[in-house]
Design a protein around this nucleic acid. Sequence first.
DNA 1: AATACGGGGTT
DNA 2: AACCCAGTATT
Length: 344
Amino acid sequence: MNNLLTKHILGGLENREKFQIDLLEWFDSHQRDLPWRNNSSLYKTVISEFMLQQTRVTTVIPYFENWIEKFPDFKSLASAKEEEVLKAWEGLGYYSRARNLHKLSKIVSTWDSFPTDAKSWQSLPGIGPYIAAAITSISFNQTEAVCDGNVVRVLTRILACGEQFKDGSVAQKKLRPHAQKLLNIQRPGDYNQALMELGAIVCHRQSPSCTTCPVQVYCTSGKQGDPERFPVLAKKKKSFQKIKRFWIESNDSLLLQKPKEGENKLVGIYELPKGIELEISKKGKILAVKKRTIGQVEFEESIYLTSLTQECDLNRYNMEWIKWENLNNITLSGPHRKWIEELK
DNA sequence: AATACGGGGTT
DNA sequence: AACCCAGTATT
């Protein structure tokens, strides 16, 4: 593993420099026109990196455009209400990213200037090794290599690294030193983006376009014709879970549940209520059965039509009546909004 | 070291 | 429908 690079053609300095130049030239002429690349700024880079974490470019674009219009800079974001911030994130998923971004903006808005080193950035909420390297390389020209899922895929293919990793984040940790060694120190931000762009539009997980790849001559698996074998990630165990949720209507309102401050990560996101079996008159008929997967857990959620007992303490279950006309003003997770639209 | 956190892509 | 994929925080 450690001598993976020294045995490879990219172990030599000259080849490494040619590789970097070929990649950068390709990036200069083939990079996608993306909203955060127009009139780019530190703020736009931070927002886009938060949004792009675990999320594809095509999904992010409309959210990014809307976000920049609504919160054009750190100060406007910092002074926004949490509900407003979550609302702008609705449907994007991983809502703690939005809360962390909000916290971060409140912190940096008090600063006179920004730190330029990755370590300082990584101490901010929601910023780990990947975003810290991305921001400081792109915005401050720091020689910090990013190592995200794209980079893991591209590098394991170039190196034909067949080591099995327990999961993606283990692979990232192991490959980061190699990524760092390959980094172009003149244009670290562009080089980092180039490698990720290559992973996104050429070196696909399935059916990579090796014939159009600008660095195929350096790619061991590409030349062998077996790039899809890499990276080798261990399979994960799955589990199943059944959940009962309840559809309770009254006075032009729907009963929804919103976890309170500090209870869990779904703070501020409404859902159809669950865990209230003791507070309903009878279970009622099943309106729908929905399936979705969160992480390694496959959920089967049955939605029962029912009504509430007289004595139910809504507060105890963090429940609220939401008038139909106010449904669009609150934040629901993507699936819950879809389910409610279907069933109402 | 393992798990929680959502959503979406491809076949 | 079944499979796969993505960073950070927390435990």
